[in-house]
């Protein structure tokens, strides 16, 4: 790899831009695809550009069908905004970090959002809609509301649904969720927005403890991110 390509790649990572590095295995020649910009000593043929763009879309590094080129995909970092500095969050933060997410915990209730309960975690004590305005969820972001308090969860959901976040989850029972949708409908949200909410958040794995619920939420986020075939919720052989 040429120094110039390495420097451009690192610069693109700082910018959180999606880029693809294409390597011709035999020669070691490379090209870096950064939006419309191309850099490197490998010719950016339409075929290579198209293949690299498709790989970016799928978030899949790998050899191309010709077996001669390797595409390495670099996407912006995964981020997770958790609304509610609750017990489940204390379990979800370290789990999500292990899975590669940069995590932000949002809770204006200062009794909950303490350094003691969340050491070394980015904490925001603004109101959730203001906090999410600043967080700016993108296609690589997930937002989960865990407070059970409509005053906090609802504004967060409205903000999250106005963003391209790949996952929006809301904790609460099916009944709680039905009431939530009624309130959100009154706020002007429609069925298309409701369809994006994963509520009750999490896969149906019979989770009970905060840590188990965190597992189920992270599992659902993963399934959505990786476009896994849908699981049928609630259907299990006894």
């Amino acid at each position: 790899m040429k120094r110039a390509v390495l420097d451009d790649l690192l610069e693109a990572r700082c910018r959180k831009a999606p880029v693809a590095l294409v390597t011709e295995i035999e020669s070691g020649r490379q090209l870096l695809l950064d939006g419309d910009r191309v850099q490197g000593d490998l010719e950016a043929t339409p075929v290579l550009r198209e293949a690299a763009t498709e790989r970016l879309r799928q978030d899949r590094s790998g050899l191309l069908e010709d077996g001669r080129h390797f595409v390495q995909v670099f996407l912006p970092p995964l981020r997770l905004a958790i609304v509610g500095a609750v017990h489940i969050s204390q379990a979800l933060v370290p789990m999500a970090r292990l899975a590669g997410y940069a995590v932000t915990v949002i809770d204006p209730r200062r009794a909950w959002a303490t350094e003691e309960r969340f050491p070394d975690v980015e904490m925001v004590t603004e109101w959730p809609d203001d906090a999410l305005e600043a967080f700016q969820p993108d296609e690589r972001s997930a937002v989960v509301t865990l407070t059970h308090d409509p005053k906090l969860d609802d504004p967060a959901l409205i903000k999250a649904l106005a963003s391209p976040a790949f996952y929006v989850g809301a904790l609460g029972s099916t009944r709680t969720h039905a009431r939530r949708l009624e309130r959100l409908r009154a706020e002007g949200l429609d069925e298309a927005a409701f369809a994006r909410i994963h509520g009750p958040a999490g896969l149906a794995i019979g989770a009970r403890s905060p840590a188990e619920i965190a597992v189920s939420v992270l599992a659902e986020m993963t399934a959505v991110l990786r476009r896994a075939p849908p699981l049928v919720k609630g259907e299990r052989k006894e």
Partner: peptide
């Protein structure tokens, strides 16, 4: 700074490997 680092994350850290590459060069 914005991405908390843990040892268990290190396997995924192409950023760290490439950053280190630049530093070593």
């Amino acid at each position: 700074d914005s991405v908390p680092h843990t040892d268990a994350m290190a396997w995924a850290g192409s950023d760290e490997v490439l950053g280190q590459a630049a530093a070593w060069l």
